[in-house]
Design a protein around this nucleic acid. Sequence first.
DNA 1: GCTTGACCTTACTGTAACTAGAAGCTTTAT
DNA 2: ATAAAGCTTCTAGTTACAGTAAGGTCAAGC
Lengths: 140, 140
Amino acid sequence: MNIGDAAKATGLSAKTIRYYEGINLVVADRSENGYRNYSDAHIHKLRFVQRARRLGFSIDVCRALLSLYQDRNRASAEVKSIAKKHLGEIEAKIVELQNLQQTLSHLIDHCAGDDRPNCPIMDDLSGEFHDTSADDRKLH
Amino acid sequence: MNIGDAAKATGLSAKTIRYYEGINLVVADRSENGYRNYSDAHIHKLRFVQRARRLGFSIDVCRALLSLYQDRNRASAEVKSIAKKHLGEIEAKIVELQNLQQTLSHLIDHCAGDDRPNCPIMDDLSGEFHDTSADDRKLH
DNA sequence: GCTTGACCTTACTGTAACTAGAAGCTTTAT
DNA sequence: ATAAAGCTTCTAGTTACAGTAAGGTCAAGC
């Protein structure tokens, strides 16, 4: 199986597969003409990596998972621990983004969005706070 | 004001401030000895960028925001549109991460996490599905 | 005058995970 | 025979910096 077919079989691009070989993640055999040659076992590994990457695991973690995958004596506790750590990072990222979301949508809500220059978003960025968080109070 | 003081005044590192100058984002004056020299206006710009970056805007978008900031005739609609686009991207990322979170925590929940090799997380990555989504049904 | 230490300069490298492009083989199809 | 498709390696670009090296500048203390 040449790299093009491997790409089709795994959903990865040929470029990506070459890159994975470059970093010693999944190394193919070579045919006589120098072309990379992929066996079913290679394809299996590549698909494994593709799924792990889709779940957001870093390449380094994929490397560890791949080696656990090939370890008949692995403890599922080890896999679970890696996954849990990754889940924690994802959850932290979600919280971080949700904070940004709140701040941004608040600012957006209070921007007229017309042709005048006055803009609470700019005020916030420039450090002039107009305190829109209590804009329901009575002024004047 | 030298770069060290500018760093303290803005919360950015000197490295970052030099980088911003390198990409023509905020360019300082120079003293006779060749040191960068920051005025209040420079500090203000740097703080503007710092706040925008903290809100997750890319450097390129910061550049656009900075130029809008200095445009007395800007329309707040333009700022709002940039912010809205960014908010959309953040929200998309949140959804993506929440999907990962669901998948991962589901897999983690179904992994014994002991010293045996059997592991639904590995099964999922390798493409062997054991369908834990309906694991409350009676088997056997 | 000399040294020390803090601060500044430029320039180069490394990060993550690829993607794009160039120049040149090999294979396949016409 | 030739063109198209597919393969090879190599280099550079992406984002937003951080780390390090080698060296210039400045104020204080002896």
